[in-house]
């Protein structure tokens, strides 16, 4: 789905996250980058260097906002101050869509600052969809929800993660930011076939894709965003693009950040699959759900 109502009918290519260590180089050299993704919360301030730098970036680049602490899945209502500041920032950036995570992270006003997993229950479906609808109304912009990496599952869950995601976005009438690295990490941690997940997602709702690296530990995989994208994640990405079509793609790299050119080169590897999608647009979006592959085949 090259452009859809969930990404504001835009047709963005490969972007990278705007990070402080790259500020000077980007502003001095003005490299050709299709778009930058910013962490909204880093710029929801009243003044200072972050906003001044953002304004200079906006003079030359397209910027998309990605949030980390709206917490659609928290059982209590969204933080009104957060929403107001987020909306003000969207007016500044002109972001065509806003994304945040399918998770919870605060309760009774106390914040974890983590992307905590939800139980996949009907109660959580209803609550999360309700909060997304509310945010979408307040922001007057399409919202994409991103699947998170998870390390725990709940006894109470009544469905799979991909069923949960599909139910939430359907009821909220919002889009999906499909993070294929998160799918891989969660599949390893919870022993499911990641291709089943990718094949189950409604392709018409995917407005953006995240790729990233992760860390391998003996007993689990951790979403650390401090490595190049690993082969099994590229395979999931290839399949996602095959199903969804040419879609705005972003490389996340948040720790041990390499020089800008190295980071951008890694991100641009996505063009290999995006170019193929351009050659046969939409056909892939109609592709049937593939039979599940073994996790080891994907790895």
């Amino acid at each position: 789905m090259p452009a859809n109502r969930f990404n504001g009918f835009t047709q963005y290519g490969v972007g990278v996250g705007l990070r402080i260590p790259h500020y000077d180089e980007i502003l001095a050299r003005r490299p050709v980058v299709d778009w930058f993704e910013i962490i909204s919360e880093n710029y929801m301030v009243d003044g200072g260097n972050a906003l001044a730098t953002l304004d200079r970036i906006l003079e030359q680049y397209r910027v998309v906002q990605h949030g980390v602490s709206l917490y659609f899945g928290s059982a209590q209502r969204l933080n009104g101050d957060h929403l107001r500041r987020l909306k003000a920032l969207t007016r500044r950036t002109g972001t065509p869509w806003v994304s945040d995570h399918l998770c919870w992270g605060s309760v009774d006003g106390t914040y974890s600052h983590d992307l905590l997993p939800l139980p996949y229950t009907w109660e959580a479906v209803e609550r999360t969809a309700q909060q997304i609808r509310h945010a979408q109304q307040e922001l007057e912009l399409p919202i994409l929800v991103e699947n998170v990496s998870s390390y725990a599952e709940f006894h109470d869950s009544e469905m799979t993660e991909w069923e949960f995601l599909n139910e939430v976005v359907e009821r909220a009438d919002c889009g999906i930011l499909l993070d294929v690295n998160n799918i891989y990490v969660s599949s390893w941690n919870h022993d499911f076939d990641p291709m089943t997940y990718v094949n189950a997602i409604d392709p018409a709702r995917v407005g953006q894709i995240h790729i990233a690296g992760h860390s391998r530990f003996e007993k689990y995989r951790l979403d650390t965003h401090d490595h190049p994208v690993l082969d099994p994640v590229w395979k999931l990405y290839a399949r996602a693009i095959e199903r969804v079509g040419h879609t705005a793609t972003l490389l996340e790299w948040d720790d041990r950040i390499p020089p800008f050119d190295e980071l951008h080169t890694e991100a641009l590897k996505a063009n290999r699959w995006l170019a193929a999608a351009v050659q046969s647009p939409m056909a892939a979006a109609q592709s049937p759900v593939a039979a599940p592959e073994s996790r080891h085949a994907a790895a």
């Binding site: 600052h113 983590d114 390390y151 725990a152 709940f154 006894h155 941690n189 951790l222």
Partner: peptide, 24 residues
Amino acid sequence: YLRPGRRLSARERLGIYHRSYWAR
């Protein structure tokens, strides 16, 4: 409230989030 996994107990799974909370 948490299921054990094939490699990690429920407590160990929660421990990943606990370390992350305090470290962050």
